[in-house]
Amino acid sequence: MKLIRLLLLPIVPVYYLVTWLRNLLYDAEIKTSKSYDFPVVCVGNLSTGGTGKTPMVEYLIKLLKADYKLATLSRGYGRDTKGFQLANVNSSATLLGDEPFQFYNKFKNDILVAVDEDRQHGIEILSALKKKPEVILLDDAFQHRKVKAGLNILLTTYNQPYFNDIVLPTGNLREPRTGAKRAGIIVVTKCPEALSDSEKASIEKRINPKANQLVCFSTIGYSTVVISSEKTRPLASLSKFTLVTGIANVKPLLSYLSVKNLAFKHLEYKDHHSFTAEDIARISENELIVTTEKDYMRLKKHEVLKSKLYYLPIVCHIDKASVFNEKVKNFVAR
């Protein structure tokens, strides 16, 4: 794969030019973006792959849900449906996509969860509801420039920061690095817990934020328990299990489990993998299965897995939490 991407290097200038020109047209208002008279917060990234958008959206939900009527709006990647869908008791990961279904399962009593490939269209429908939201959180919509979010939160990972990358197809960037200028907050995600202040300063210097941009650093914290539909168990009590993952970057999870000296084997699938009957039969051969919360949304419907399937929750920790929270809350309050 690396060789193929290297061979595609001559295409990089073409991709760069096309995406740069597209942004230029939006910046010059030749192509139009729609603004709204209520708070719209976008969580996104410049790169392909997992940067921790789901934990960040959940962080924002917990931060705001007590004070505002919230809605999340996602594309619904990997779903079998098209167009606008509003989550309800009959929804599933198949109808909504993994992450939106996860939001619904965790926060269905507090927020609205919707999906639509066209975020502008989705916002229009949400705004027309009788009980319309006061704040809309856009999941993975940084490049969806038909909508002009009032606050953009850009995520980039510690191991693969956007300033060390180039655009597709040889690199992983969806657009040139200059796109970072649209962000109000830049969060370096999946950092090691022992990240020093000097290294943070070095990274922030590479980012070179504008005066109005806040740079934060976050870590992913894993729970000490695993959860099923019926019970909760201490992670340390699992003597042997099979780990099933279908996420973009599994390295932090593997590192965490290894540090805990847990005995497990790993069945790894691609991000947003659609589990087949053959996959389920293979997975069900194991006595105890631990998976991510996102994968759990797709796997829990299979009766053959019900008594043996658990997920390991994660949470996002931000180093400048009070400053971050204040910036978000001040934007929403305005």
Rank of each mutant, 00 (worst) to 15 (best):
E230K: 08
G221P: 02
F217Y: 08
I227A: 03
L253F: 00
S218F: 05
A236E: 12
F241R: 03
G246S: 11
N212A: 07
V225R: 01
C216K: 03
S237M: 09
L253A: 06
S223R: 08
L214C: 06
S218K: 05
N208P: 11
A248E: 06
A211H: 10
K210H: 10
P209C: 06
L214I: 12
A211K: 07
I247C: 02
P252F: 02
C216I: 11
T219I: 13
N249H: 06
L214F: 04
I227F: 04
S229C: 05
I220K: 01
S229W: 03
V226E: 10
I247P: 02
L254F: 02
V225N: 11
L214Y: 05
I227E: 07
S228V: 07
L238R: 04
A236N: 13
N208H: 09
K251E: 13
C216Y: 03
L238S: 13
L214R: 06
T224G: 11
P234Q: 07
L243G: 00
N212S: 13
P234K: 03
V226W: 01
R206M: 15
L235S: 13
K240C: 14
P234N: 09
I220Y: 01
L243Q: 03
V225K: 04
K240W: 11
A211T: 14
Y222L: 08
N249I: 06
V225A: 08
L254A: 08
T219G: 04
L253P: 07
T245S: 15
F241M: 04
S229R: 05
G246T: 09
V250G: 01
T232C: 08
V215C: 14
S223H: 06
P252T: 10
A211F: 06
L243P: 06
K205N: 14
S228P: 09
S255E: 12
T245D: 00
V215I: 09
T245G: 05
V225Q: 11
K231H: 09
E230P: 07
Y222D: 10
P252V: 09
G221V: 08
S229L: 08
S223D: 13
V215A: 07
S237D: 15
V226Y: 03
K205W: 05
L238N: 14
